[in-house]
């Protein structure tokens, strides 16, 4: 476990208090953002239904608690929430409705080293984290940790290829590289479907459902995985 402890990713350092509030507001302004947020919620709801409405869910990373009200829709669900940044948890606690916050047990944890026993939760709900991780070894380490902590299912969202946006992104990147521009702002990554599916299988998960945000156009995909028995 000591090897996993050392995994600290660059993008996770930016979530200080100010950034956390910014992140909370990010999903509130503008019609497009609101619509996209609604679609996100819809996908999450479906993924939870595919996972069989788990009763004990770990929301990791919980961010500003954007999905807490959704998770709390099921009356007897126990929600654990963890984030690598204590500021994020703090913002989530203050920004979300108090009756929802009262039902969430939040704690600080890295996705590479979750302070829970084996098979401790029914499902891990991991939104918008995987696309920040470029290194396959890191992804695998994280998936393995998820495999240890979850009893049954894992819900992840990530960026996949095979759609218009990823094609355009690739083209822009090659243009930028041709112009000699730097790729310094690289903290989000597209993974090929076959690659990530192979990694899921290697970590010991079967895919039981996959939904695209906007099929053929957007890169976002929500996968529901079940532990292979």
């Amino acid at each position: 476990m000591s090897a996993q402890q050392s995994i600290q990713l660059e993008f996770s350092r930016k979530y200080d208090s100010a950034h956390a509030w910014q992140y909370f507001r990010k999903h509130q302004d503008g019609i497009a953002r609101r619509l996209s947020n609604l679609r996100d919620q819809q996908l999450a709801r479906r993924a939870l239904a595919i996972a069989g409405e788990p009763g004990l869910v770990l929301d990791l990373p919980c961010g500003a608690g954007r999905f807490w009200p959704l998770l709390a829709e099921k009356a007897n669900r126990v929600i654990l929430a963890a984030d690598n940044s204590p500021h994020m948890i703090d913002v989530a606690r203050r920004s979300q409705p108090p009756e929802v916050v009262a039902r969430v047990h939040a704690f600080q944890a890295s996705a590479f080293n979750i302070d829970l026993g084996d098979a401790a939760v029914d499902s891990i709900f991991c939104m918008r984290l995987l696309h920040h991780i470029a290194e396959p070894a890191h992804r695998l380490a994280m998936l393995r940790e998820f495999h240890r902590v979850t009893r049954d299912t894992l819900i992840v969202s990530l960026w996949v290829d095979g759609n218009f946006k990823s094609w355009r992104r690739k083209r822009l990147e090659t243009q930028r590289a041709a112009r000699g521009g730097s790729s310094a702002n690289q903290n989000r990554f597209v993974v090929a479907r076959s690659v990530i599916e192979g990694e899921f299988a290697e970590a010991g998960f079967n895919i039981i459902g996959a939904q695209d945000f906007l099929p053929g156009y957007a890169m976002w995909r929500v996968c529901t995985l079940r532990k292979a028995s």
Binding site: V78, L116, A119, R151
Partner: peptide, 11 residues
Amino acid sequence: RNRNQLLPLAP
């Protein structure tokens, strides 16, 4: 089967 893990929290 796995309820003993987080007994105080188990839904």
